[in-house]
Design a protein around this nucleic acid. Sequence first.
DNA 1: TTGTAGGCGTTATCAC
DNA 2: GTGATAACGCCTACAA
Lengths: 349, 349
Amino acid sequence: MDVTMKDVAKLAGVSLSTVSRVLNDSSLVREETAIKVQKAVEKLDYQINDSARILRTNTSNLIGVIGAGMERPFLANLLKGIEAEARERGYALIYGDSDGEFEKEQNYLNIMKQKKIDGIILITTNYYNDLLSIVKNYQIPVVFASGYISDPEISCVTADNVAGAYDIVEYLCQAGHRDIAFIKGPDLDLLASQERLRGVKLALRLSDIEYDPSRFIEGDFTFESGYSAAKKIINKFPDVTAIFAFNDEMAVGVIRYLKEQNIKVPEDISVVGFDGIELGKYIDPALTTIKQSGYQLGLKSIEMLNKIINQEKIEDNKVFIPHELVVRESTNKLNELTTNKEVVKNNRG
Amino acid sequence: MDVTMKDVAKLAGVSLSTVSRVLNDSSLVREETAIKVQKAVEKLDYQINDSARILRTNTSNLIGVIGAGMERPFLANLLKGIEAEARERGYALIYGDSDGEFEKEQNYLNIMKQKKIDGIILITTNYYNDLLSIVKNYQIPVVFASGYISDPEISCVTADNVAGAYDIVEYLCQAGHRDIAFIKGPDLDLLASQERLRGVKLALRLSDIEYDPSRFIEGDFTFESGYSAAKKIINKFPDVTAIFAFNDEMAVGVIRYLKEQNIKVPEDISVVGFDGIELGKYIDPALTTIKQSGYQLGLKSIEMLNKIINQEKIEDNKVFIPHELVVRESTNKLNELTTNKEVVKNNRG
DNA sequence: TTGTAGGCGTTATCAC
DNA sequence: GTGATAACGCCTACAA
């Protein structure tokens, strides 16, 4: 069996409670005694038994994360940010992937409840409404990190997808593009993709361009889906001058397809993405996109969750992280030569 | 307070022990009673208190994962594979990023021990020897998933980095390249990068090419480091005909730099990577590389760990996952035209 | 300032 | 088949 407090107490020649006090930095213990205990702890390499502590205190310093498709670069960085900030604040992470299936989400939620997690970060986009009612019922502090949740009781941290999509479409329109095609996320995605869609519609309306649903091809945020969506677009709408893929990976797929067809980017068709993943700087042509920081998103999510757990006052439970339009090489003004400069426009925060 | 077994027992009109038996599928309980209990469980939406169970049984169904740089596509897929297979086998995951720092690794190891994890997957490459001695001392089942560990007591699952690197260098040599430059991983990486280096040396020797250490530039597996390493290479060795970056992201960085210098890939310089991430198919030119499946690696790691935990017999505690040379567009034979076909050569495993 | 004792929610060992 | 009851290791009144 492992070393327990009892062993430490015996070695230090004090009682159990004294050991406990020392371990919990209770001030009411003589320095001399504390040192004795510390020495015993080190000598025995004592490690607290977390289960016993949790059982007793009902608080675990454990945060649950339920996500889906976290291998996408943007989300991988989100997870990294979550982990770093959670560690910083003394939480450990228990992580589950739902594959976007409600049953798995539900399942993880139960497991996490059983483990008495202090709070939970949800990154799912499909069945979030069902999830919310479970979470509310369980009374677990929760922060959504994958989109805007209108329910006033629920906290969320997210990029402003509506504004971001608006910005980049406006940019295209101002560059003279009117014949634009779009690659959405999965129709099951009720958050980011829907929000970006709203931003697009808004920008189109203000530029006096008719909204044509048939110009929105469904993708699934992978390279491959961008590639095949591009094929459909080129076949159905040979006159497009610009394509907006709702994330960078799909935009990369688009660019690949266009190259194979000897269609020049940006001379023939401009291509833009969303997210601003690192890769976008290195493909050719470098990708014009809306940049947001997944890492930052993760960090802010934990920050907010921590406040909720500690019942601190929260000014606003809907938080937007900054985004910016980054113009690189994959876009140009209609009937103009390409400019290769990287320009940062419109940095909101 | 939450619903406990006591509440269930009361509602079902049975004793605590009976409830426990039902929950643990003990056969020695009358069907009738079992149903009564089940109903009470559902009615109260009873969830077991995991801490109490762990405290009592000393087994947690929890697997710890300590990694670093997990946002890299290959490793993100590894994590995905780990998660999927762990879930499948009834484990939950507790995940920590060490940033490649020994102190953080050590710290997570302690936290995980306190949580009574059943086993641990280590994906770190720097201080693994120090980690190993701690893990051994803690007597926790462990599987390494980031390289070959020679210690016969330690299990590992990994791609055959030596053979993979050998294969791709041999391929370059057979295509007539003798003037090759290399971009290693960080010198701190004592596993994958070192192993690939060994494979390279072997292939060079067999092709009768002198090993010149100055032709090995240190990178850190990022796009950016590939980009800047390429710059150094072109300046120092203007006559190279091929560059082998030790992972795909760096290879993408190389290709970007070469394009900016109007150096044609593969006509002027062939470029190869390692890992076979999805992206490699979509950049232009598509990347020749050694492909291995991170997902598969994760899956096999959990499979092995599960066996160790259950004290099942293990035939071989060193497992290699398959790799294959995938020839795409970024390489050609010296003094020949590019071929654009994707060819799978040498699928071992 | 320190020690004693009860209980957190389970499981396991006894009896019945 | 079922039911008491004693741990598991820790925290926390309360007592000293």
